[in-house]
Design a protein around this nucleic acid. Structure first.
Length: 528
RNA sequence: GGGUGCGUAGCUCAAUGGUAGAGCAGUGGCCUUUUAAGCCAUUGGUUGAGAGUUCGAGCCUCUCCGCACUCACCA
């Protein structure tokens, strides 16, 4: 990049043209122009605004802890430190300036005095440095009159000039409580410009630290229980394993349409057929559906499959796994979610799905074995059954409308109707029901599991039966995965299988009201 | 996709159909232990975009864009 004149139109013109070509951004705002002029002045004075390297010796908290340690030991020798971070507050008071910088650890105060750095440098700091700039400062640690551990700056320089001001956010400490003023709140700006959100809203960073810890805790738990972590194709020639519309893409050279996976199920069960008795995957699923506070088009799923186990054993492993995650990540098993005290202590409540629906809606679906009969019973109760719905969908409607909202404490709903569970094994002696459970917390579903169907003839019949419920052009109609049937015909051991929305678990453990809060870059419509 | 609501300065928010404002941030000045520092002065707006009604529109009407909530969809 050529060196630029201080603050002429030539310099600005250069930058604007460059930016427009690259990103089609608009012109710089007046606030940005002010900062660009500072940038050019710094450069003209020989202060590189974007030096190649930093040289910090301590993070903010390391410096504070090291100072406290020396203080307790009564060491007279002052602690020298070079700190680096983002300028978040600056209070100029004539011949001295107090400032705070923020790094990955937290905040620390800087104290700049004309006596120490020189009047010229102090003026440079006050005139050309802005909130949001990344800077480096060296000096000795001390305590101010009010007791705050502070760096008495002897030398400082810019590490990266911020051209665009951060959305203002100031903290006030009242009786030990941090009160934030004019924080960035607009959800659209927060999600579109997550970098700005992360920079000014510390709670956001904590959510994603917790998210990473939750995923690691799940991996550790399953690893300790003998499950092998694998990665299966995201681009699939056929999709399956869930009721969802897929995203379609195309491989040019192979002249082949491909689907982004909607679940891992059929691939992971192929692996069990191949002899991997305990297997799991944590990864991204893609579903071409509407968005809501609990749905994003791409989301993170955990699935595991466990040979020779059934859904009851999976149920027990599930509550152990969640408790283990709570222990590792939070150090406790109770959380507050949107005002509800929720306990993940073992065991969770177990409720037969039929019984739960009977209690909350007054309808026993077992007494109505056809969709017509069930719809009539619902109408008789003053409910509004969806027209032309299958019996399974009507039961699902009763579940979501009446039962689901009541399931605040962790609850396993078990035994589901066969016609909404084409991959689950029937209950012995009850051909209409399958061995399946779903875990509900805070009124929404977080996991889904069953004793897996391993009878290739039954599976083929279910696929065909399922296909009959849809017209040929119905988008929900699923293709039959012949290769999966072949894998099953080679022999597939009995097994329990499990799937969980990791984002929803993160929501629960971070008290987030929307899935978008726990996704770094949630899906939004295109800007403009 | 439907319904409801919202969109005003960089951020958070005001403004009966009648001159678009405040705090913070910014700019200039004073200030050597402050911490939402303070004090004085001051800049900043095509009120999301476009059209219409009106003497006059941030406000009323319509279209579009975006966001939120909600419904539909989600074996």
């Amino acid at each position: 990049m050529p060196s630029s004149p201080a603050h002429g139109s030539l310099a600005r013109g250069f930058f604007i043209t460059y930016e427009r070509k690259r990103t089609m951004t608009n012109e710089y705002t007046p606030l940005e122009q002010t900062r660009l002029e500072k940038l050019h002045r710094l450069r003209n004075m020989g202060h590189e605004p974007y030096p190649t390297r930093a040289a910090r010796t301590h993070t903010s908290q390391e410096a504070i802890r090291a100072f406290e340690a020396l203080e307790t030991q009564g060491v007279a020798e002052p602690l020298k430190a070079t700190l680096a971070g983002r300028l978040r507050a600056s209070r100029g008071m004539g011949k001295i300036t107090f400032a705070h910088i923020e790094d990955g650890d937290g905040r620390i105060q800087l104290f700049l005095r004309a006596n120490d750095v020189g009047q010229e440098a102090l003026d440079l700091f006050n005139r050309e440095f802005d909130l949001g700039d990344f800077i480096q400062a060296s000096g000795e640690m001390f305590r101010t009159r009010t007791g705050e551990i502070t760096l008495k700056v002897e030398a400082f320089h810019m590490l990266a000039k911020a051209v665009t001001p951060l959305p203002a956010a100031k903290d006030e400490v009242i009786d030990g409580q941090v009160v934030r003023h004019a924080t960035l709140e607009d959800p659209e700006t927060r999600y579109r410009q997550r970098y700005a959100d992360l920079a000014v809203n510390p709670g956001v960073r904590q959510i994603f630290r917790n998210r990473a810890a939750i995923v690691r805790a799940l991996q550790a738990f399953l690893d300790e229980h003998g499950f092998l972590e694998v990665e299966t194709p995201i681009l699939q020639p056929l999709y399956g394993g869930a009721a969802a519309r897929p995203f379609v893409t195309h491989h040019n050279q192979l002249h082949q349409d491909l689907y982004l996976r909607i679940s891992f199920e059929l691939y992971l069960k192929r692996l069990v057929a191949g002899g991997i008795e305990r297997v799991f995957e944590i990864g991204r699923d893609f579903r071409n559906e509407g968005v809501s506070f609990k749905h994003n088009p791409e989301f993170t799923q955990l699935e595991f499959y466990w040979a020779y186990a059934d859904y009851l054993q999976v149920m027990e492993l599930t509550e152990q796994m969640i408790a283990s995650v709570c222990d590792r990540v939070l150090g406790r098993r109770t959380v507050t979610y949107q005002g509800h005290e929720i306990s993940f202590e073992i065991p969770w409540r177990r409720l037969e799905m039929r019984q739960g629906i009977l209690e909350t809606s007054g309808i026993d679906f077992a007494e109505h074995t056809t969709s017509e009969a069930l719809a009539a019973a619902m109408t008789a109760k003053g409910l509004h059954p969806k027209p032309n719905a299958t019996r399974g969908k009507l039961i699902d409607q009763l579940l979501s409308d009446h039962l689901e909202p009541t399931l605040i404490q962790p609850t396993f709903l078990y035994d589901y109707p066969r016609d909404i569970s084409p991959l689950a094994k029937s209950k012995p002696g009850d051909p209409l029901m399958v061995e399946r459970f779903e875990g509900y917390v805070a009124g929404f579903e977080i996991c889904n599991a069953f004793t897996e169907l391993n009878d290739p003839l039954d599976q083929e019949a279910r696929f065909i039966e399922m296909g009959r419920d849809y017209a040929d052009d119905d988008e929900e109609r699923h293709p039959i995965d012949e290769d999966y049937l072949r894998a099953m015909r080679y022999g597939m051991p009995p097994m329990g299988g499990f799937g969980m929305g990791v984002d929803r678990l993160v929501m629960l453990l971070t008290d987030s009201h929307s899935i978008r809060e726990v996704l770094l870059f949630p899906h939004l419509r295109k800007e403009e």
